[in-house]
Structure formats: structure tokens, C-alpha cells
Amino acid sequence: MAEITYIQAISEGLREEMQRDESVFLLGEDIGNYGGAFKVTKGFVEEFGEERVIDTPLAESAIFGMSIGAALQDMRPVAEMQFSDFVSTGFNQLVNNAAKIHYRWGAAVPMTVRMPTGGGVHGGPFHSQNTEAWFFHVPGLKLVAPSNPYDAKGLIKAAIRDKNPVLYFEHKYLYRREKQELSGDDFLVEIGKGRVAREGEDLTVLTYGSMVPTSLEAASHLESRIDVEVIDLRSLMPLDMELIIGSIKKTNKALIVHEDIKTGGIGAELSARITEEAFEWLDGPIRRVASIDTPVPFAPSLEEYFMPNPDKIAAGIQQLWDY
């Protein structure tokens, strides 16, 4: 077994699905000869041809519209946003068109949207955002956010095979930092299933994406004092409430960590759901560690202040534990 990076895992997943199923094709800006802004699709045009690896004009709305149209003709398009920030110019197609078609007239829209996401890479306000919460509010979309190469590969394959529009939030910070040995087997990670990234008894950290390794680091700093359980949500919509509630019933304390800003983030909903479903099991308030409510600042010092890091998460854990 060879060790591969998170970004290689995405490439492998895409390649395997394209080899397996002729209806899978890719479209996005600069993904063809150039191989994509992050080189996820490097070499794809040579292997699969220009008709299945389509360099599009700069037109996010049309990229999604085209994907929807093709999906309605039983193709399985995978659209790439160069940066997930740019999804806003194609917003309507996702939230009003793709998301609602099955509910409205019963046709499946099996499309995948790749969303290179997140900060920590000094990209500034328009190349660093976490945009998942914009779509979390939209019934009909599925949202996944892998934190490691295994999930990255298993989830991109599951997303492509899903009959629904799936937004796949791949974190840029993890691209070349997360490495793992993966077997060459054809495996999927089920959408809707979270994962216990670290078992613990004292307190549950609910997190996803880039904050999984960050939270694990915080948990290991506190190891001698507090036995932290870290849940990697993996699937944001649908949420694995069984896993989440099960963990809360065990530890009785929940800290939600996300890189997205705090107000109106996934954490707000998680907090409400836990209160609704497990109030009697709580031995403390549900708290959140998230980015501050500002645009993503550019200068490293500002971005450092803006985002959660292991120290901030550890402090959040300690405070909640002390409560």
C-alpha cells in the first residue's frame, strides 16, 4: 500500500469513477490541459478526452445549469468550483434548481460539485471561505466534508454514485498535509455516516473538515487531564444524529468546532438538535469554537486571530470541562 495525500485521494476517486462509469464527466474552469488550479485533474484530459474533461468558460451559473441538464439526461457530471467562494455566482442553480427538482417532479439529479474550501492558506476574503452553511439550509442538497485521504476518496466516489446533488467540500489546507496509506480497493464512505476520530469519555468535540486534525491535536494536548471524544461528522447533510446523540449521552458535554464563522454555522443547528434530542443528558452548555464573524482576513496575523487553532480549541474544551 502506498501513502497518498488527501488531494491524490480525490484524484484517484475521480479517476476510478470515470473508468468505471462512462456517464461520469468533469466540467470546470481550467481543469483540462492545465489540470485544475490545484492539479486535481492533472492528466485527466489525456486519459479521458476533452468531451469528458471539459474546460468551461468563466460562468459558474452555466456550469451548474449544464450539470443539471446533463444529469437529467442520466449523465453524472462532476462540476469543479475553482474556489468554493465562487459558488455564489451560481447559487441559484444549486438552491432553486438542482435542490428542488426531485421534490417538484421526481427526476433525480445525480451531480457532484467539488468545492475547494477554507482558510489557513492566506487566500484572503474571496479564496478562503467556508461556504457549507449557505447550502446547509437547502433541502435537497447533500453536503460532505472529508478530513483525511480515506474519507476523501470514499466520499467523492459515494458522491458521484449518489442520485442527488452532492456538494463535496474538500479543504485546501488538508490537500497536501494529510497523508494516509490506502488500499487500491474500490471502497465507498457512506454519506450520512460520521466517524469517531478519537474515543473518549469526558467530553465530545463535534467537528469536520480541517478542524478534525486540529481538534485531535487539541485533544492530545489535554490527554492527561481530559479524555476527549472527537467526532468527525464527515457528512453535514444528512447529519449522523445517531452517532452524535450517542456520544453526547455518553460524555454529557458537547463542544462544536468549525472553521466556518460562528453565527449561523452548522454548529448552530447541531446545538439546537442536541438540545432538542438530548437535553436531559447535558451536564453543561453546548459551546462552539469557530471563526469570528468577519470576512476572512488576508494577513497571516489577522487570519490566525480569525480562525480556531489547537490552543483555542483546547481552551474551549478546558472551560467546558471545568463547567
Partner: peptide, 10 residues
Amino acid sequence: ISVAAGAALA
């Protein structure tokens, strides 16, 4: 408009 184009692309 682009959905129809996407169907044509298929």
C-alpha cells in the same frame, strides 16, 4: 438556458 444546454451536452 444552461440546463437545456446541459441536456444537449449529454
